[in-house]
Design a protein around this nucleic acid. Structure first.
Lengths: 117, 117
DNA sequence: AGCCATATGTAGCCACGCTACCTATACGAT
DNA sequence: ATCGTATAGGTAGCGTGGCTACATATGGCT
């Protein structure tokens, strides 16, 4: 993956906490992707703000797979092994839940934080 | 503190992570408050969504005090001891920083999460 | 006397994103 | 041929912070 010459600060780790799973489900909504592709998709869709290490993403994907929200399968592309993940029905429902929770959460923080509420 | 008859789900703990400090600073912007009053203010300003336990708020306040973002002082009101916190200059700057970070963060999550972007 | 609201605090748990590694293949440049 | 980089997957262990569960104390109401 070719990174932008940076200039963007990475998101704070604690801030991301609890919001990663929803974002992972979201990038899988349009099309199945493998881990590395997911990291790229997050980077692209965040305008370069998210540049998540594999140590964050791969364990998270295994977690989501254990929870039956995504479904992984191995394949070989160009001599390299890939694990491609697909959103399950339960994952779609979970994504919808996460989206509405995000609306609620961001509303709460916005109103408490004020200043730009 | 008299709680509403509930009906509101509490915010997820992981979601709050990393966003609490900013909210604490924000409620201290208008007026100095003691811990218990801060919990009430957060409850009020969040429309009842935030009902934070003392085990969350008191350690966070000590942390902010150690960081010189707030300044605490003891007093006695109606026979009860209070520790009242005031936002410092550094705290005001930190609050501004937190606010702009929140704008950025919520923009990023919104654009990645999509659906209602 | 008992209970609640007010008020502050700590010990220890747990989840999860992170750093720092490791392995492996394909391919272009030197 | 060798090196570096992009692609691709993975784990062990750390740190942190919000949480549960508790402890302490006063004032006031019944």
């Amino acid at each position: 993956m070719v990174r932008a010459p940076v200039g963007l600060l990475p998101m704070d780790a604690d801030a991301v906490r609890g919001h990663l799973d929803g974002m992972l489900l979201a990038v899988l909504e349009d099309e199945p992707l493998h881990g590395y592709g997911i990291i790229e998709a997050l980077h692209r869709r965040s305008g370069g703000a998210l540049d998540l290490p594999t140590g964050t993403v791969y364990p998270a994907l295994r977690r989501l797979e254990r929870g039956r929200w995504i479904d992984g399968s191995w394949s070989t592309v160009g001599g390299r092994k890939r694990r491609t993940y697909t959103l399950t029905r339960a994952g779609q429902r979970e994504l919808a839940r996460r989206r509405s929770e995000w609306i609620r959460f961001s509303g709460v923080v916005g109103s408490v934080l004020g200043g730009t509420a």
